[in-house]
Measured scan of single mutants.
Amino acid sequence: DETGKFLVLALYDYQEKSPREVTMKKGDILTLLNSTNKDWWKVEVNGRQGFVPAAYVKFL
């Protein structure tokens, strides 16, 4: 149950560059965990948590 969690859509592919980031593919649906930083949002994708560039995702 994803109640209270926001979902975001990956607009572009992103390859993680550090262990704190996660890789996503364009079209992936991600669970948004934290968006307090304007540049990097914490998400969960494929069972992994990490950061992606905020400009690469949008709210569903």
Score class of each variant (00 low, 15 high):
Asp1Ser: 14
Asp1Phe: 10
Asp1Val: 14
Glu2Met: 13
Glu2Leu: 12
Gly4Pro: 15
Gly4Phe: 12
Lys5Tyr: 12
Lys5Pro: 13
Lys5Asn: 11
Phe6Gly: 11
Phe6Gln: 15
Phe6Asp: 09
Leu7Trp: 12
Leu7Phe: 15
Val8Ala: 10
Val8His: 03
Val8Ile: 09
Leu9Ser: 06
Leu9Cys: 09
Leu9Thr: 10
Leu9Arg: 09
Leu9Lys: 08
Ala10Glu: 00
Ala10Val: 08
Ala10Leu: 02
Ala10Arg: 01
Ala10Gln: 01
Ala10Met: 02
Ala10Thr: 03
Leu11Ser: 04
Leu11Cys: 08
Leu11Tyr: 04
Leu11Gly: 04
Leu11Thr: 05
Leu11Phe: 04
Tyr12His: 13
Tyr12Ile: 10
Asp13Thr: 05
Asp13Tyr: 04
Tyr14Trp: 12
Tyr14Asn: 01
Tyr14Gly: 01
Tyr14Asp: 01
Tyr14Ala: 01
Tyr14Val: 01
Tyr14Lys: 01
Gln15Cys: 10
Gln15Leu: 13
Gln15Pro: 06
Gln15Glu: 15
Gln15Lys: 12
Glu16Ala: 15
Glu16Thr: 08
Glu16Phe: 05
Glu16Ile: 05
Glu16Pro: 15
Glu16Cys: 10
Lys17Ser: 12
Lys17Val: 09
Lys17Thr: 13
Ser18Phe: 06
Ser18Trp: 06
Pro19Thr: 10
Arg20Asp: 14
Arg20Ile: 13
Glu21Thr: 08
Glu21Ile: 03
Val22Glu: 00
Val22Lys: 01
Val22Pro: 01
Val22Thr: 06
Val22Cys: 08
Val22Ser: 02
Thr23Ile: 03
Thr23Tyr: 04
Thr23Gln: 04
Met24Ser: 00
Lys25Ser: 10
Lys25Glu: 06
Lys25Trp: 08
Lys26Trp: 03
Lys26Arg: 12
Lys26Ile: 06
Lys26Met: 08
Gly27Cys: 06
Gly27Ile: 01
Gly27Ser: 03
Gly27Pro: 00
Asp28Gln: 13
Asp28Gly: 03
Asp28Thr: 07
Asp28His: 04
Asp28Asn: 06
Ile29Phe: 06
Leu30Arg: 00
Leu30His: 02
Leu30Gly: 08
Thr31Gly: 06
Thr31Trp: 11
Thr31Lys: 13
Thr31Glu: 09
Thr31Gln: 10
Leu32Met: 05
Leu32Tyr: 04
Leu32Ala: 03
Leu33Tyr: 04
Leu33Gly: 01
Leu33Cys: 06
Leu33Arg: 04
Asn34Leu: 08
Asn34Trp: 07
Asn34Cys: 11
Ser35Phe: 10
Thr36Lys: 13
Thr36Tyr: 11
Thr36Phe: 10
Thr36Arg: 11
Thr36Cys: 15
Asn37Ala: 09
Asn37Trp: 07
Asn37Gln: 09
Asn37Lys: 06
Asn37Ile: 06
Asn37Met: 08
Lys38Asp: 11
Lys38Cys: 10
Lys38Pro: 15
Lys38Glu: 11
Lys38Ala: 12
Lys38Ser: 12
Asp39Tyr: 15
Asp39Lys: 13
Asp39Cys: 14
Asp39Ile: 15
Asp39Met: 12
Trp40Arg: 03
Trp40Cys: 06
Trp40Gln: 03
Trp40Lys: 02
Trp41Lys: 02
Trp41Phe: 10
Trp41His: 03
Trp41Glu: 00
Lys42Phe: 15
Lys42Gln: 11
Lys42Ser: 07
Lys42Thr: 07
Val43Cys: 05
Val43Glu: 00
Val43Ser: 00
Val43Tyr: 00
Val43Gly: 00
Val43Phe: 01
Glu44Arg: 08
Glu44Pro: 00
Glu44Asn: 05
Glu44Gln: 10
Glu44Val: 08
Val45Cys: 10
Val45Lys: 13
Val45Pro: 00
Val45Leu: 15
Asn46Ile: 04
Asn46Thr: 06
Asn46Phe: 07
Asn46Leu: 07
Asn46Arg: 12
Asn46Gln: 10
Gly47Ser: 06
Gly47Asn: 08
Gly47Lys: 06
Gly47Pro: 01
Gly47Arg: 05
Arg48Gly: 04
Arg48Ala: 07
Arg48Pro: 01
Arg48Ser: 06
Arg48Glu: 05
Arg48Gln: 08
Arg48Lys: 13
Gln49His: 08
Gln49Asn: 08
Gly50Pro: 00
Gly50Ser: 01
Gly50Cys: 02
Gly50Val: 03
Gly50Tyr: 02
Phe51Trp: 14
Phe51Leu: 09
Phe51Ile: 07
Val52Lys: 00
Val52Glu: 00
Val52Gln: 00
Val52Gly: 00
Val52His: 00
Pro53Leu: 03
Pro53Arg: 03
Pro53Gly: 01
Pro53Gln: 02
Pro53Ala: 02
Pro53Asn: 02
Pro53Trp: 03
Ala54Gly: 04
Ala54Trp: 02
Ala54His: 04
Ala55Asp: 09
Ala55Trp: 07
Tyr56Met: 11
Tyr56Lys: 07
Tyr56Glu: 02
Tyr56Leu: 11
Tyr56Asp: 03
Tyr56Trp: 07
Val57Cys: 10
Lys58Trp: 09
Lys58Glu: 11
Lys58Ser: 12
Lys58Ile: 15
Lys58Arg: 14
Phe59Lys: 11
Phe59Gly: 06
Leu60Arg: 04
Leu60Gln: 07
Leu60Phe: 12
Leu60Gly: 05
Leu60Lys: 06
